[in-house]
Amino acid sequence: METFVFFYFASIIVLTAGFVVALKNPIYSALALLVMFFHVAGLFVTLHAEFLAIIQILVYAGAILVLYLFVVMLLNLKREEHFHGQFIVGLFLGCVLFAEAVLLVLKGETTLGENLADSAAPIELTRGNTESIGELLYSTYLFPFEVASLILLVAMVGAVILTKKGILEVKG
């Protein structure tokens, strides 16, 4: 049952991710991305990471993608050439990566399978999902967490300065 659910989510994710790139209308691309986000959230749920699943929907589907759609509609992007010059480079890189993946699976089939089985088994939590993540963020991963928040703060200040063009000239 679990394998079946996993393969359902995984195949839909791959399919819709393909649609995001291949569809000509940017609005349809955005919607394909929306479907993909929901299936990624589904994958998280099968791993018993409900908190991550709902944050996935809340942040990516609820906020970021709405902004994308907003911009796409505001600029009224119509059908454009969807394969640009990077098509050849992308095809080449894709082939290389695909070959690598095939080689890996063929060579180390047994170890890869075992590793997958290990990581797929959910870790038994004594407390809820949210508490565990909070505890980890404020103890073990405190430094990376603070660095990430600092980067976000810098990005916020940068966005304010970029939109308010007059700010720098008046002060300096």
Binding site: L31, L34, I57, L58, A61, G62, A63, V66
Partner: peptide
Amino acid sequence: INIGVLYILAFASIGAYGIIL
């Protein structure tokens, strides 16, 4: 579910798609 509040917030934000589309 132990993330009920977030669940409601998440689906409230999904409602924007219907309106914008």
